[in-house]
Nucleic acid binder design. Sequence first.
DNA 1: AAAAAGTTTAACCAAACGGTTAACAAAAGT
DNA 2: ACTTTTGTTAACCGTTTGGTTAAACTTTTT
Lengths: 205, 205
Amino acid sequence: MSKKKDTNTEELILNAAKQVFQKKGMTGARMQEIADEAGINKAMLHYYYRSKQLLFEAVFKSAFSLLAPQLNKVINAKTSLFDKIESFTNNYISFIITHPYLPNFIIQELNRNPEFAKKLLAEKHFPNIDNFKVQVEEHIANGIIRPIKAEQLFFNIMALNIFPFVASPLLKGLTNVDDETYKKLMLERKTEVADFIINSIKVIK
Amino acid sequence: MSKKKDTNTEELILNAAKQVFQKKGMTGARMQEIADEAGINKAMLHYYYRSKQLLFEAVFKSAFSLLAPQLNKVINAKTSLFDKIESFTNNYISFIITHPYLPNFIIQELNRNPEFAKKLLAEKHFPNIDNFKVQVEEHIANGIIRPIKAEQLFFNIMALNIFPFVASPLLKGLTNVDDETYKKLMLERKTEVADFIINSIKVIK
DNA sequence: AAAAAGTTTAACCAAACGGTTAACAAAAGT
DNA sequence: ACTTTTGTTAACCGTTTGGTTAAACTTTTT
C-alpha cells in the first residue's frame, strides 16, 4: 500500500473542478478549463474520474455534504427553538460568506435534475424535519409561539437566510447598492434575520 | 407594411426558445432543440435572431419585463405598507404558479453574468426602492412598525415570496413532502407570508 | 536491477455544436 | 406576366466538445 505524493492529483482535480463547476454549472463547465485550473493534462480528469458526469457528481456530493450539517443545525439540535434560530442564522451567514457560490450551485443543479435530488436526499440518511416539527408543535401548545405550520416556518427560515446570497445580483440591482454595502447588509443579517423571525412568531405575554 | 401569416414564425421561435432556455439555461440549451420545439428548421432561428446569444437575450428580456411589474408592486404603489405587502404576496404567488420556471431562470442567468444584470437594470429605467424607503421610514417615525432598514425589509419580502419556488427541489427533499402537498403549502403562503412579515414588524399598541 | 504497476503526456477521434450557404418556394410589388 | 423580396429547407462547414490511445516516465514490488 501507499500514497506518498506531496501533490495529490486526485484532490487537485477535485478542487479545480469545484471552482469551475460551482461558478459555471454542469453544462457551462468545460473539462479543459478544469484541467487548466488544476494545471494538469486533461486526460488526468478521465484517469481519476472517468467522465464529466462522475466528476460533477463528486463535486456535487462534496458540496452537499458541506451544506448538510449546516442545515441540520435548524432541524436537529437539542437547544430551544429561539436559540436554534439565532445560532443557525449567525452560523449559516458566516458559513456562506466563505462559500459564496455554494447555495446557488446546489439549487441550480437540483433544478436541472430534480430526480438526482430525490435520489440524493433518499440514499444519504438525511436531515429530517420530524424533530423540528415536534418542537414547533410543543411551543405552540405551550403558548410560546403563535400557531404556524412547522413546514412554513422552516421554509421561512431557509428563505430569509439563503435567498439574499442566491439572488444577490438581482437584489443589488433593485436596491442599487454597491458590493461593499451589500456585504455589510449581509453581515447585519446575522442578527437581523433571527430577530425578524422571532418577532414574528413569539407570543407576547 | 403587413403581416399576414396565421403562423408567426418569429413568435413561434420565441415561445419555443422561452421553454427551452428557461428549463435548461443558456449553456444547457441547444439550438436544434429549440428548432424541434418550434417544429421548424434550425436555420430559421438564425434568420430571425442572428445568434444564440441574441435569441437568449430576447427571451431573457421578455421574462424580465414580465417579472418587473410584479416587483414594482412592492416598491411603488400608493397603498399603505401593510396593504402593499398583502397584495404583493397574494399576487406574486399566483403569478409564479403560472410561470414556475421564471424566477429560477432569471436568478441563474444573472448569476452567470452579473455584468449583464447591471447593464439591464441600468438601461431600462427600473423599479427603484426610493419610494419604498421613504414609506418605511415614515412608518417607523409614526410608531407603526418597529425600526428596520428598508433594504432588509425588502430583502425579507423578496426572500419569503420567491425562495420556496427557486429552491423547491431542495425544500421538497428536506421536508419530505410530495409535489401535491408542496403546491398546497405554496398556496397557503399567499396569506401566510404577509401575516408572517406584518407580525414581525407591526408595533403592538 | 529488472519487471510490474501506476501516473502523466501529446496527439488523436468521433460526435455535437453554432452557424452558413445555396437552392427553392411563396408573397408582394410592378 | 414577371420581377423582386421574403421565408424556408437540406446540406454543409469549421470549431469545440468529451473522451481515448499509445507511448513515455515514475514509482513500487520482487
